[in-house]
Every structure is written in C-alpha cells, then in structure tokens.
Nucleic acid binder design. Structure first.
Length: 646
RNA sequence: GGACCGGUAGCUCAGUUGGAUAGAGCAGCUGCCUUCUAAGCAGCAGGUCAUUGGUUCGAAUCCAAUCCGGUUCACCA
C-alpha cells in the first residue's frame, strides 16, 4: 500500500545486561585504565600467590568501599579465603596487609584488620595521579567502540491519541539505555514502531468524519495529536450511549432466562467485546478497517491526513523531551510481514495447522501454552507481525542484541516472541531482550482514559516548566544570580530545569518496578532530583567564572573530603558499566546524585578560591573540573542537560 | 487455577556476585547566608527489611512454604 510519510522524526537510543565481556578496542589510552577495585584485586591475588603459593582468581576476591565508620578506603573481605588458606581471620589480614603495604608502597599507605575485614588505605599519591590523568577528560568512563551493535526499540505510540506519562517513562528509559550502551562502546540503532493502523485508528477517523465538521489543527488551534485523541474519546462516548439499549435488552433476556442479576452482569462484562460489535458505530469502524485494508481511496486519504496531524504533534513533543530515532517502522507497512514466516514455520514443523485452518505454535514444552500465529481467515495476529518485524530488523541492521522497551504487561508476549524466533532460526533471535518496565500509577490508582485521570505528557511538561520558572523568579528576588541572562536564555533555563525534573523523576526508579507518580512530589525541586544535580553543576561553573585551574601540581596529600571526592569520581567508569550490564539508568541517576551531594559537602567545608595554599587551590579546581565533567556526562546519559547558572 | 513481578522508615525509593551498626529524599524538629550560587550544608528523630522455617562463619539479599498487591495465560494490539 502506498503510504506518504511527510514527517521527519529524528532520533537515537540504547540497552542492559550483556552476558558477555566487552571486547574493547584501544582508542583513547586514558580510558584504558584499570579501575581501582581491579587493581586491588590483582594485588591481593598476586600477594596471596607469593605468600601461600595458592592461586585465587582476582575477580573472585570481594573488594568493597570501606564503611565510613572505619579507617581505610577499600576493604577486602577475608572470610571466603579462610578455608582455602587455612588461616584465622586476624592472622591472614595482618600478614596480607603487611605484605601488600610493603610490596606496593605506591598504592597502599596503610591497613587495619577488624574481624574478617582487611581495610586498606590507598595512598594519596595514587589518587593524585588518577586525578592528574583524568580531571580534564570529558569522556572519562566511556569505553571505546567494541564492534558490537545493539538495537533499541522504544516509544512505539499509537497514532490515535497523545502521549501520556507512561509513554514518557518508556521514552526516557529507552533513550537513556541507548546512551548508556553507547558509553559502553556499542553502536546503537534507536528505533520505534508507530502503531498507525488498526481498529483503534479507525475509531477516531469515524468520529471525526461524523462529528468533526472538517475541524483541523489549524482551524481549531488544537495540537494535532490532541485533536485526534479528542475524537477517539468521542467515539468511546458515542459507543457507550449506543451500548446502553443493547445491554439493557440483553440483561432482560438473560434474567428472563433464569439467571440472577449478578450472573447476568458478569456475563455481559465477559462478552463486552463481542457485544460491542452490535453497536452501529462500532460496525462502521470495522467497515472502515476493511475499506482501509482494501485501499479505498477516500479512507486512505483521511487516514493519511489524520495521521499527519498526529505525527506533527508527536514531533513537537519528542523535540521538547529530546527523543529521537534512527529508524521508524510503521505498522501499516509491517503488519503483513510475518505471513511468509508462518509458511516457513509450517514447513519446518515449528507451527501446525488446526482443523479449522488456523496456524499455531505449541510451547507447552517450554512451560507456556499454545499460541495462535495465523487466524483461520488467514490474517496475521499481533505476534506474527512482531516475528516479521524482528526478521526485518535483522535483515537491515544485523544487531548483536535487540532490545524492546515495552511495559511489563507484555512479558508473556515477548517470551513467546523470542521462543518462536529461536525455533524459526531467525538471525539474532538469541539477542532479543524485553526491557520490561512497570506501569506508572497515580496515588489514587491506575490512570484511566474513561475517568479522565490520564496524565498528558504535554501538560506534564508545561506544568514542570512553569514550576521551574516560578521557583527561579522567587530566587531572583533574593539573589540576582541569573540577572545577566536574556529572556530567551531564561526560558531555556526553565525548560532545562523543568524537563530535567520530570525525566529524573521517572528514570531514578528501577525500571522493573511499577512506580507511584505523586504530582506534588514530582514537582518538588529539592532533594533527590535533577534540580539538585543541576544546581551543583552550576556551582562548579560559578567557580570557574572567577578562576580556572592552571594544570599545575596539586600537592602531595589529601584532606578527607578531597579524597572522598576523587574516590567517588573514580567510580563513574564502573557505574557506566554496571548501568549497561543491567540496562538500568537509575544506577546513573543515583550515582550522579551522590556525586552532587558529596560535592556540596566538600564545597561547604573547603573554600576553593580561598584555599589555604595555592597548591590546595589548584587541587580543588581540578576536583571541581572533574566533578563538572562527570555530572554533565552522567546527566547526558539520562538525557538531561545542565545549566551554567541557575 | 498455571506462569511471572513486587512487598525495606509516615510517604517515595536505594541497598553490587550473601559481609561490619540496613541508607537517601520528602514530610517533622535544631542550627548555618558580610564568604566560590542557601535550589545548599550540618544535626535530631524515624525500621519486626510482609510472615515462618531452612542453608552458613555471616541473610534485606539464596531456598521452601504462607499472606498481601500487580500483570498475564484472546482467532485484541
């Protein structure tokens, strides 16, 4: 079917937990450094081998950050080693500690043993060397290209209504996971499937045709996706009206038939979909779907027109939230794709035919059920399209992994999809991964279109930006911090803060968990929020407006907070890897906030520009710079910008 | 009923392959702006980690059962 797509969605994205180690290609030598934890593991392993002639795999040695209440920076947990080495905890800790300090003077400056824990102090010189190498590396923590390619599909809107809060979580997750994959060295293809055809699309079309009086986004001044969404809602209302007499009649018949009212109501509820087919307006919508599939010119034309309104509206929203895609698939172009594969599956005996001619796959051996893949009338079902699309994606991009960012109500669907693709031997089937996330709910429960409790994405953004502006204007009365900014710059600032707040709020929670969206709390710009992190970044820049680092020597020793800062910053590389392994942007969000919080303590405790000595000033300016880089880089992985002043 | 997911402070959430006295934010209470940005900092208070049993040097974390909440098991998508 000829389809005209006059839209221009731009885009990008990334995934999680890879079972395989990264094959890194050396490109940036400064990014090839070994993490401190690995350095310690290797040193301990080597020392054990020397002292006791026993080989212990470095990665199997537990090394963690020392708890604040103890002396030291990193802790080796000895319990696991006691049996193999036949030592008592204190004895082993002491022997190992002495040998480690004696043999690695540049690395360790001291140790203590408490119970089965060997606490090691890493020397100031090691941290200073690290700072020297990395403080001005804006790409610290990012890995060189590893030659692997990953596809991330996210967003996937229906073209019959505007985006809502659930779509925002999906978009931010998908986008961020894509960026995190890139930071881990993968090439990423961000994709989206536009669900642009089907009975739900016809519903808005019918309603517009009947009640629209030729209304357009231009004539009404309503954003296209919202306008179409209004007609979708209108369809629902009309249908409800038409169902009333039908249901009443049916109810009376059932009761006359001897059923109790309760039984009858339950029956009607179960048969809701079937009964709706008796409503005139529903029949009209179904006829329209038939006409669309037959390519009836006026229907196709209306479909194109209304979809173009929606796309235009989506483009605006995507632009505001900074979402984009490298490749967009349209269901109108892919919905027939899986049909050949059904034939192939039948030949390969992956599928089988039932007596009525429908085609099925039997997954009972995999702990699942039988699943239909082709209706008896020969048409494809949802899963069939997805099989076809998976095949199509591989033909074009040959990705090592293919991530689908889709809500957890489709867990079963994706389990089935992967299994079928594997059985069919589709390339890349093993790389299919469903990044499942929990629903966004309100304190009052689920969002329901019928009850008008759906939080609209555009409204949400408007409200957050309004809040950011309000807060900024309050602050301006106290301190004239943003006085030098133009009106346009101020507006951009409000957008950075407002959209950052909603992004951070949705992305800071473990994707897997469903989350409660409390409008009042989300609007708060204090505490564990993007705003606090952005504010911290603005502070670093405020310092640099007064004075820059020179690149000179930062001295030989560190105060506790100075060292804590460097230790925290060093961890960033590991956090990126972890967030990638787990496909979990919340790991980045939590870390970036920790950096900001620690920096604020540091900032409060030690003056940078009025440091005790010029050497201390240089040290703190370098810490200031690395903090700024890490915050900016980490926030960028979440799709959140940071302002120079606020 | 089968399968899968969740249950941690009043609320919203962290808690790495099992490690030391379970952490943040919000809300509540005390202090701190003549200073590099107070959208911040320091502190107080707040816990039967759903329950029970098990594994072991050690369990919020692993196993089993139970309770509570959610999702799913369509010739819808």
């Amino acid at each position: 079917m000829p389809v005209n797509h006059a839209r221009t969605w731009n885009l990008k994205l990334k995934p999680r937990k890879a079972g395989q180690a990264l094959k890194t290609v050396p490109l940036h030598p400064q990014n090839q450094r070994m993490a401190i934890v690995s350095v310690i593991q290797s040193a301990v392993s080597a020392q054990i081998s020397q002292l006791y002639q026993v080989n212990i795999e470095p990665s199997s040695i537990t090394v963690s950050e020392t708890k604040p209440e103890f002396e030291g920076d990193y802790t080796v947990v000895l319990f696991a080693l006691l049996k193999t080495l036949k030592k008592k905890p204190e004895e082993l800790g002491t022997e190992l500690g002495q040998a480690l300090v004696a043999g690695n003077a540049a690395l360790f400056s001291g140790f203590n043993v408490i119970k089965g824990f060997l606490n090691l102090a890493v020397s100031d010189s090691w941290w200073l060397q690290f700072l020297k190498e990395q403080y001005n590396n804006a790409d610290y923590g990012r890995q060189p290209r590893n030659g692997q390619r990953v596809m991330v599909e996210y967003s996937s809107p229906n073209t019959n209504k505007p985006l809502h809060l659930g779509h925002l979580r999906n978009n931010f997750l998908g986008w961020s996971v894509a960026e995190i994959y890139k930071a881990n060295g993968y090439e990423v293809v961000k994709t989206c499937i536009a669900n642009d055809r089907g009975i739900h699309i016809c519903k808005s079309m019918i309603a517009w045709q009947r009640f629209g009086n030729g209304a357009t986004p231009e004539s009404t001044g309503i954003k296209g996706d919202h306008l179409v969404g209004d007609y979708y809602v209108m369809f629902g209302n009309v249908l409800k009206e038409q169902m009333k007499p039908i249901l009443e009649k049916k109810l009376a018949a059932l009761i006359a038939d001897g059923k109790t009212e309760e039984e009858a109501l339950k029956y009607l509820k179960d048969k809701k979909d079937e009964l709706e087919k008796e409503a005139e307006i529903m029949q009209a919508a179904q006829q329209m779907l038939v006409d669309w599939e037959a390519g009836k010119p006026d229907v196709v034309e209306l479909w194109r027109t209304m979809n173009s309104w929606v796309y235009k509206g989506f483009d605006e929203t995507y632009k505001r939230i900074g979402s984009n895609f490298d490749k967009i698939y349209y269901e109108s172009e892919t919905y027939l794709l899986g049909k050949d594969l059904v034939e192939e599956g039948l030949r390969k005996k992956v599928f089988f035919l039932k007596d009525d001619g429908s085609a099925w796959v039997d997954l009972t051996g995999d702990g699942l059920d039988q699943k239909i893949v082709r209706r008896r009338d020969g048409t494809a079902v949802y899963i069939t399209q997805d099989i076809g699309l998976a095949h199509e994606k591989q033909k074009e991009f040959h990705c090592n992994r293919s991530i689908y960012v889709v809500g957890d109500e489709q867990n079963y669907h994706f389990k089935v999809l992967k299994l079928i693709c594997q059985k069919l031997g589709i390339e890349g089937a093993d790389g299919i991964y469903h990044l499942s996330y929990g629903m966004v709910e309100l304190p009052t429960g689920k969002m329901k279109t019928r009850e008008g409790t759906v939080v609209d994405a555009d409204d949400m953004l408007d409200e957050m930006i309004r809040e950011a502006k309000k807060k900024r204007e309050e602050k301006e009365k106290e301190l004239n911090k943003t006085a030098e900014l133009s009106a346009a710059e101020l507006q951009e600032l409000d957008e950075i803060v407002g959209s950052g707040a909603i992004k951070f709020f949705l992305v800071r929670v473990d994707p897997q968990k469903r989350m409660i969206f409390n409008p009042e709390e989300s609007i708060d710009l204090h505490g564990f929020t993007a705003t606090a992190v952005q504010y911290t970044y603005a502070r670093t820049q405020s310092v640099f407006r007064k004075e820059m680092y020179t690149g000179g020597e930062p001295g030989a020793d560190l105060l506790p907070l100075e060292k804590e800062m460097i230790i925290k910053l060093e961890r960033y590389a590991d956090i990126i890897r972890q967030a990638g392994d787990e496909m979990n942007p919340s790991a980045i969000a939590g870390y970036v906030y920790e950096v900001a919080k620690l920096y604020n303590s540091f900032y409060n405790e030690h003056s940078i520009l009025k440091a005790e000595t010029p050497v201390k000033k240089e040290l703190r300016l370098q810490i200031n710079q690395m903090t700024a880089h890490v915050i900016k880089s980490g926030m960028a992985l979440l799709g959140i910008r940071v302002p120079d002043r606020m």
